[in-house]
C-alpha cells in the first residue's frame, strides 16, 4: 500500500481548483484571472498524476503533458490579447471591456 492515500491528493486538488475558480469570479483584473485559470489547470494535473499512480498507468502523465502544452499556448495568446487590449483601452479590468454587451 502506498504511503499517502490517493484521496488526500484528490481533496487537495479539489481545494486548489475551488480557490482558482473563486479567483476567476472574484477578481476583475485579467492578469489575475489568467493566473487563476492556470491554478485550476494545475489542480486538474494533480488529479491526473494521483490517479495515474493509483491505477498504475502512464496515461495520466501523458495527459498532463498535453495540458501543459495547451496551458503554454493559452498563456502566450491570452497575454498577447491583453497587451493589445491595453494598447486600445489602457486598462486591464474586464468590466471596462463591455462594448459587446450592447
Amino acid at each position: 500500500m502506498t504511503a499517502v492515500p490517493t484521496s488526500w491528493f484528490l481533496l487537495l486538488s479539489a481545494i486548489l481548483f475551488v480557490i482558482g475558480a473563486g479567483g476567476v469570479l472574484l477578481r476583475r483584473n485579467v492578469l489575475i484571472m489568467l493566473m487563476s485559470v492556470e491554478m485550476m489547470m494545475n489542480a486538474v494535473n494533480l488529479t491526473f498524476i494521483a490517479l495515474s499512480r493509483h491505477l498504475s498507468s502512464l496515461t495520466g502523465q501523458i495527459f498532463v503533458f498535453m495540458v501543459m502544452a495547451v496551458a503554454a499556448v493559452e498563456v502566450a495568446v491570452g497575454l498577447a490579447i491583453l497587451i493589445e487590449l491595453n494598447r486600445l483601452r489602457a486598462t486591464t479590468d474586464v468590466d471596462d471591456v463591455s462594448s459587446l454587451k450592447g
Partner: peptide, 27 residues
Amino acid sequence: MLYVLLNAQFIAIVQVAVYAGAIVVLF
C-alpha cells in the same frame, strides 16, 4: 514536489521548466 511524492519525477521537472520557468516569467 508533490509530483515527486507521487513517483512522477519526469512530470515534476517538466512542471518546473514549463510553469515555473516559462509561464511565470511571461506573467
